[in-house]
Design a protein around this nucleic acid. Structure first.
Length: 326
RNA sequence: CCGCUCUUAGCUCAGCCUGGCAGAGCAGCCGACUGUAGAUCGGCUUGUCCCCCGUUCAAAUCGGGGAGAGCGGACCA
């Protein structure tokens, strides 16, 4: 796999392709970042962008993980003391998950976001951004919710973080695309470059295959889960025997396949689906596409796929779980 | 600061006028059917009715006080 393919694999959007190709020509020492609001426990959504960071490290990038304590504060997640505590736990879980500690720079937002020059630049950027644009950039604001000034400042700070962390490539889930587009549009107005961005897919809701998996409500898979929790959650997941299900005429995703594609295959060379002899014995895959094809054709039954998925997920989560228990 | 509206199950809300066992839809949970899940069918759970005081045999409902949220406060001066 060449550098560009590794850098962009499993990405659902690259902005822009030319810019990323330029980075891929000489990836050594380039910097990429993802920002995370410290939240209780690392879950499968965090792990998806973390997989991308691991790809980038393999390609030679330096990786910055922003533990966005100030953002969490602006989003009403608690006191700074509480937030920093969870940030510390989160950092340990990222390392346990597989980020190379020596190649990863963990930065607390408050380390630079309170500096005078940052604050002044922030105000300059506020001057360039309309309230409605900022509001639209905040993915999680539901219509009808009342929006605070803090929530409007939030995405503007994300834009400025890209400048202050001196990164060449901003990574985020697809829900971050509006923030990144805001950054691309407004940063030039204060004399900074438009950042290059790349977005990872969102895993669909486990239970329905519709919308995105939510960590705050509904079912998510996290590093807190026991082996039994994972088996139970995976087993109850929506999984019709096809990659492109429709339900009541609505487009759905197959979350079981998505997790194979975005979590299992990037981290395992070979996937074995154990199967009783009466159903045909074990199956062996070395890429995602052949597994999907077998599910589609009926060769692979969803129940067997789920069994295998639970096993591999458990293996991915085990190191982090050990950290939490310790 | 002033005015109007709202506050009832996890969510959206009905009930309030005219006081009498706390409701519906959705969600959730449990079974049946499927070699998974979903769909379908059957069953079940869920409450500080925003708070306090008062009236009454009886208050989600009526009266008073308070809190929180939303919207509005244009023109002229």
């Amino acid at each position: 796999m060449d550098a560009y393919d590794l850098i962009t694999r499993n990405a659902s959007e690259v902005v822009t392709e030319d810019e990323v190709r330029a980075l891929a020509d000489d990836p050594e020492g380039k910097r990429a970042y993802v920002g995370y609001e410290p939240s209780g426990v690392l879950h499968i959504g965090h792990m998806l962008t973390a997989n991308k960071l691991i790809d980038l490290q393999d390609a030679g990038f330096e990786v910055v993980v922003l533990l966005a304590d100030v953002h969490a504060y602006l989003n009403g997640k608690g006191t700074f003391e509480e937030i920093r505590e969870t940030a510390e736990r989160m950092k340990e879980q990222f390392i346990a998950y597989g980020l190379d500690e020596s190649q990863t720079e963990f930065v607390l937002g408050s380390e630079f976001q309170l500096d005078e020059s940052y604050v002044l630049d922030l105000h300059a950027l506020e001057l360039e951004t309309t309230l409605s644009r900022a509001e639209r950039a905040m993915a999680e604001i539901k219509s009808g919710d009342s929006v605070t000034v803090a929530q409007a400042v939030y995405p503007i700070m994300q834009a400025l973080d890209i400048v202050y962390l001196d990164v060449d490539l901003a990574i985020g889930g697809m829900e971050q695309r509006k923030v990144h587009m805001l950054a691309r549009d407004t940063l030039p107005n204060i004399g900074e470059e438009s950042p290059t961005c790349m977005h990872t897919p969102l895993i669909a809701d486990l239970a329905t295959g519709a919308g995105k998996m939510s960590s705050s409500k509904g079912v998510t898979i996290s590093m807190e889960d026991s082996t039994e929790d994972i088996e139970e959650k995976v087993n109850s997941a929506f999984c019709p025997p096809t990659a492109n299900p429709t339900e009541d005429g609505e487009e759905r995703e197959n979350p079981v396949l998505q997790i194979f594609e975005y979590h299992v295959f990037p981290r395992f060379e070979r996937v074995v689906v154990e199967r009783p002899d009466k159903y045909g014995g074990n199956l062996d895959y070395d890429d995602y596409e052949s597994l999907e094809a077998d599910l589609e054709s009926g060769e692979l039954h969803p129940a067997d796929a789920k069994g295998a998925l639970a096993g591999y997920l458990d293996e991915l989560i085990a190191p982090g779980r050990k950290k939490i228990d310790a």
